Amino acid sequence: MTRVLLIEDDRDLAETLLQLMEFENMVPDYASNGVAGLTLAQSNRYDILVIDIGLPKMNGLTLCEQLRQEGCQTPILFLTARGSIDDKLAGFASGGDDYLSKPFDNRELLARIMVLSGRRSSQTPLIKVADLSLDNSAYQVFRGEHHVKLTPASFTILELLMRASPKVISREELEDALWGEDAPNSNTLKAHIYYLRRSLEQVPGPKLLHTVPGKGWVIKED
């Protein structure tokens, strides 16, 4: 069964979502504020965290940042009434994997939860391209001796690109790997790619992530 932690201060919405999750044979826990949610996330093992951004006591972005700093790699899906590209970038930068704007279709929420909670890799754990190395078992990325900090979604994108290198990976392939058949609008993937490129280029070295117009993206040396 999928264990879900829902952190949402709208009690009516939370009750509806909890009933929906239970109907789908999920095992949900619930917190109505950020501090209580943080305590539950630190004390229990979940397959996914579903977090509202506008929470009392501790907002969702701060909660996510603290969990990531503590080493928590559980997928995080943000729920929020704010849906601009800047809001999404802030969510991804804090460590979130996905972003669903209110109001949303409950079927889409369930699909996102199942895709994120089931995302795992059983392939060879260590991959190298040029000075870039990715260790799936330790969940770490390095450029040379420099550690590269990534969100879980950006980590997944990088792993797909590195395993395929020097082959180009299309938008459709990346969206399918991240969200299955329920991919959000194109801005969401663009935001993840932007964050990944910025993270890689903060470390000195040749450009490795390339956009191939009309085809997709590739990881390779110039």
Rank of each mutant, 00 (worst) to 15 (best):
A138S: 13
A14E: 06
I127A: 12
S43D: 15
Q123I: 03
V35T: 15
Y139A: 11
L100W: 00
N25P: 00
R68G: 02
F78E: 01
I48N: 00
N25E: 13
V35N: 07
L18S: 08
L126H: 15
T39W: 06
N59A: 04
R120D: 12
R45G: 05
A138Q: 12
L79E: 04
D12Q: 13
E108P: 00
D47N: 15
Q42Y: 05
D87Y: 05
A31T: 11
G144R: 10
D29W: 09
G37S: 07
S133V: 02
L13N: 09
L49A: 01
I76E: 04
L13V: 10
L38H: 12
I7W: 03
R107E: 15
N136I: 02
L63A: 11
V4T: 02
D52E: 15
D29C: 05
G34S: 04
N136E: 15
D52P: 01
K57R: 15
F78A: 05
S43E: 15
N59P: 06
R119A: 06
F23M: 13
G54R: 13
T39N: 14
R82G: 02
D10S: 14
G118T: 15
N44S: 01
R120W: 14
E65D: 11
A41K: 12
S117I: 10
P75E: 12
Y139I: 01
A14R: 10
L49R: 08
L17W: 10
V50D: 05
P28I: 14
G91M: 01
